[in-house]
Design a protein around this nucleic acid. Structure first.
Lengths: 232, 232
DNA sequence: CGCCATCTGGATGATCTATTCCGGTTGTTA
DNA sequence: TAACAACCGGAATAGATCATCCAGATGGCG
């Protein structure tokens, strides 16, 4: 982990917009809301009713609206920490000795983050003009990413026509895989990423992780919930 | 084109459920609805309000509901023809002399169909238990696909661990790319498919189509509409 | 031509979600 | 501890969409 402990209630008064420091109960509810939003977004995606999040947090809707006037504000608040982790992933990859390994590990790590969180899968490839902190983390990640890519190319492992935008493309594609398969065949994304790494490499085919069973893939087509293996 | 002229009003009475043959004006409205649904789904995706389709077709909502009781019925009606074209794409690929070329052309053709139609991009990886014809076309495509894959492997061009489910995975991924980029950077999917073909092949890297400009990709992130190049 | 089953379009009611309002409560400060 | 500002939650309002109903129009058949 690269990032230091971030954004406890203590440093709120140092924020740019000079928020007048919330009252204790208000700050407590704010945290509850962020926690609830994280959980609900992760499980059900970004389109859940606002009210469900409020109920899950145990507060009234008005409280939610007061703290996060728009949905985008709430999303930004909920994913700020994860966005920092995302940026950290690049930084961590940069310190690894082998540039190509670092690059591959990075792709897998980020895609795993998408697979583990329905909301994050989509939020990664969106932009929220209202959320300064949020976008700042994204930019931080981007600039390090350019360097990571440059190293991998210099090491002769990454194809020279690879561009940073290809990462975004990968994230969009992986979001498609994840949202379609999450319930019924939640490991397909690993195979997908392995394919993409293969495509990005200048070398010959490498072995792939096992594919999902046709049955599981069929369940994904039906958009059915994943029934635990063994349960009748 | 492989498929003969399909499904004019004439063969309706041969359908399994023995529809009692619609009155002339009813059939006319049915066609209008299907045409309207195609256009609206293609442009705005599958989640558009039912009423918008009725209005676009110039009929009342009741007429739409009477002919297509559920949204799935309407979707099936609207995409039946395109589903046939999808199945034809495999058949066409099978008659090409070079198995690997046939395989690659097939992937590009199908992904192009996704890129050209927002609704189709999503509908391809879904299942509609109510639509017999619809699913029949999908199955027809699937079985031919297995053969196409077998040939490409036998020709020594397609990696042997490739599975038919990987095609579905590709369609899911491409749907993600297409829905995220359609408005702002509508050609990214070409680059994506080229990468995937590279990954599926047993050979070394091939040149890629040009990438989208960073500006275009940024517009995609913002989910902004695509401003025609040249227009201020 | 005239009947009538079929069909039509808009009105209607139900459901769901977003957003605002307000009487009552609670934290903080002196 | 008293007083006030900030905060709270649920009710109320508003808008969108779905799905159904019904009085009237219309095509097809004898």
């Amino acid at each position: 982990m690269t990032s230091k402990a971030r954004s406890t209630s203590a440093d709120a008064d140092q924020a740019e917009a000079a928020s007048p420091a919330l009252r204790a109960d208000a700050e407590r509810n704010r945290q509850r809301l962020i926690t609830a939003a994280r959980e609900v977004f992760a499980e059900r995606g970004l389109d859940v009713p606002i009210e469900d999040i409020a109920r899950h947090a145990g507060v009234g809707v008005a409280t939610l609206y007061r703290r996060f006037p728009t949905r985008a504000d709430l999303i930004a608040g909920a994913f700020e920490a994860k966005m920092a982790a995302y940026a950290d992933a690049v930084a961590d990859a940069l310190v690894k000795p082998d540039p190509w390994m670092g690059f591959c590990d990075y792709l897998q790590r980020v895609c795993a983050m998408q697979a583990g969180d329905r909301g994050f899968a989509n939020v990664l490839t969106m932009t929220f003009p209202t959320a300064k902190r949020f976008e700042a983390e994204r930019d931080r990640a981007y600039y390090s990413l350019v360097e990571l890519i440059g190293r991998a190319k210099a090491a002769g492992k990454l194809r020279t026509d690879f561009s940073p935008e290809d990462i975004i493309m990968l994230l969009m594609a992986n979001a498609g895989v994840v949202t379609a398969t999450a319930d019924a065949a939640p490991d397909v994304w690993r195979r997908f990423v392995a394919y993409m790494i293969q495509a990005f490499s200048v070398t010959n085919p490498a072995p792939l992780p096992p594919q999902a069973t046709p049955t599981a893939m069929y369940r994904a087509l039906m958009r059915l919930r994943h029934t635990k293996p063994g349960a009748s």
